[in-house]
Nucleic acid binder design. Structure first.
Lengths: 237, 237
DNA sequence: AAGTGGTCTAGACCACGGG
DNA sequence: CCGTGGTCTAGACCACTTT
């Protein structure tokens, strides 16, 4: 079928599939229609569908197996480019023992200050969590996290006593964009206390907002002792 | 033509073109053969060539204009993902006046310590440069840079009195990989002096090694005052 | 053996933009 | 205008994997 709008058909197909995934309609693991079926549905040739699905596979949203079909991929790393996954995998990559402690966890009404990070309407509730990550029993990272509970179904039943919220979210929630700000700051009282370093020592701070197509999902502030941590990233053009 | 090796033909074409660019055989601005010519050369259909060239365009190595043809793109940003380009553009994005001062510039034999950053054979020479970037006449970034002069033809004729080495290299040299390490450190004497901050103040330090397919091109250590700077990055899966 | 994606063809028409 | 890339087709055969 010849295209009728201004947008190429293969891009329309790509966007349709992407929206089905990011909206949660097609959950991770879902077996999406075969190329031939979608070609019939869009009244186009299989090549056109293939172009869209091949691109989404390269982007990491789909996984394809001959004979079996095409599946929505489980969300994994924060892109191959910036090798931040979970703090646990960071620690284990350093050959150190990982442990975790939940410091506080409350469901509370949103305040004006939160809306800087998560633009949510007044009156909504958010999950406000503080926790600590350890490497060999030494404080490694202090995490402050806000979660938009409307963007994450099921979260009300989840306790973060044993698993960090970042790790759980990474398994559970597909996202389309992550924005980072990275700072070097002098440790404030509370951070110094939690990381067991001196007040004023340099800290590497990462603030990350993660969103899907529709809304912001979560905001996290990760504070590392400067002496213990550096961030690595590899890019290709 | 049916493929004869194990590698798909469109990937072979993609790699051939990429190698021509990264090896320097096809310089930035070079008008590469038309799709029809390459199809004839590889004895395949135009669609197959198109698949390879479309991918390279998405990767940012090529630029295509109807009627004119396909050109090797001038190396630009450090990928759209991590928005580091030149320090000048960083400063100007903050609406501040940029200026630059060369502190030292010497051509010297490589030492053992350098080989950690640029793995070059003994006896070779490198360019060793220190310079300062200013925002509104205030020190903004202290840059220490080593350049593998064998990887950069023409560099011997270039003075960096008015243009920073990073800016010049970005215009001049195609690269295939950039590796970053990001630290938060306490300012050492020399850095504190150059950035006009107090000894021990937190600094954001970025160490970047840039390479092409064959060899490492340059290493840079960029030190920013923590109070003045933060790094931003946006990722999509 | 059969079903699915991976690749490729030999055309076609259109959109854009330089001359 | 006309040359170039952008898109699309209606097939085809092959490669891989599950049954």
């Amino acid at each position: 079928m010849k295209k009728t709008s201004t947008q190429p058909l293969h891009l329309r197909i790509l966007n349709d599939v992407q929206n089905n995934i990011l909206s949660g309609k097609w959950q991770p693991g879902f077996n999406i229609p075969f190329e031939t079926e979608m070609a019939a549905q869009y009244n186009c040739s299989r090549m056109t569908v293939n172009k869209a699905l091949t691109q989404l596979t390269k982007s990491g949203l789909l996984e394809r197996r001959r004979k079996s079909g095409t599946f929505v991929k489980r969300p994994q790393s924060l892109s191959a480019a910036l090798e931040i996954t979970t703090i646990q995998s960071e620690v284990e990559k350093l050959n150190r023992r990982y442990s975790y402690r939940l410091m506080s966890d409350q469901l509370r009404a949103i305040e004006t200050i939160d809306q800087i990070y998560l633009d949510i309407a007044d009156g909504k509730n958010i999950r406000d969590i503080n926790c600590l990550h350890f490497a060999d029993e030494q404080p490694f990272c202090f995490e402050q996290r806000l979660i938009n509970i409307d963007a994450v179904p099921d979260i009300n039943n989840v306790k973060f006593n044993d698993e960090a919220p970042g790790a759980w979210l990474l398994k559970k929630v597909p996202w389309s964009r992550a924005n980072h700000q990275i700072f070097a700051v002098a440790a404030t009282d509370s951070v110094a206390q939690n990381l067991n370093i001196n007040n004023g020592d340099p800290c590497l701070v990462i603030e990350r907002t993660t969103q899907n197509n529709a809304e912001k999902i979560t905001w996290a502030k990760l504070s590392y002792s400067g002496a213990m941590h550096n961030l690595q990233a590899t890019f290709t053009p």
